[in-house]
Amino acid sequence: MEFFRIKQDIPFMSYGKLTTAISLLTFIVAVFFLVFKGLNFGVEFTGGTVMELRYAQPADLNQVRGAVDNLKYGESQVQALGTTRDVMVRLPNIKQKTSAQLSNEVLTALKQQRGDVELRKVEFIGPSVGEELVSHGLLALALVCIGIIAYLAIRFEWRFAVSAVIANMHDVVIILGFFALFQWEFSLTVLAGILAVLGYSVNESVVVFDRIRENFRKSNLRGKTVPQVIDNAITATMSRTIITHGSTEAMVLSMLILGGPALHGFAMALTIGIVFGIYSSVLVASPLLLMFGVTRENMVKPVTVKEEAVV
């Protein structure tokens, strides 16, 4: 069986303008949502108390909401968590009360209303922790970018490094855009997922770049122009790209469907990240490479030096 019977190199680079335009547009839309809707930060970031409850029988959210509102804690949220029996209650931080008091009060109130409720999880995060998480998250993001740029600049060339990182940041922004658009909760595990996507997506670009470098060195491709060389590299790795991503996506979808609410955000970030990872490494990173003016000499020269060193 062979899925991809590609007779000729697909002229990906000639679509460069179109794909760049599409990328730019999605990027701008994502930024728009991020700015105007913002991320729905999880309790780890905002501080507050989250309770997860399970009812023996399907719960009436309005009833639960009424009971929680009666306690007058200010802005609290009640929402279903996956099933009709699981309910999540989010409470703000209250100065005079500890989280244990808060959760006990809520549970007593709900127990009075309906006896079949069971407390599954309580989470309390103080306000100072959140800020630190944001700064650490941004720091991690910056460090990942610098690390990847440095490694690719050494192994390839700076043009490769910069285009790979730009392509990947584009993925990250788009995932964030999705989370802003649908107001999915942005939790710490989602952040882990996004940073994992960053590593994963660079991996993708590296495979294509590796092929481009190899093609530059090949004697039978010497007469070809740079775009043709890149087209050849992308076409040659196409089959692998689709199969690998298909496999990873199968794993991630399995997590999304079977993993339950705890893994949902993480799996969602990866699902979107992988789809855009394919797109960006093929149709964003490579045109960028061309735009930065990569030439055969950029890649071939260091190799001769290397060979001399070995001899």
Binding site: L139, A140, Y200
Partner: peptide, 26 residues
Amino acid sequence: WATILDSNITTLIAGIALFMFGSGAV
């Protein structure tokens, strides 16, 4: 092999950064 090495090392860079700055779940 060359490709596998490159792609895994870049992924590892991301992983190490996560480890250094992450807390708890991350």
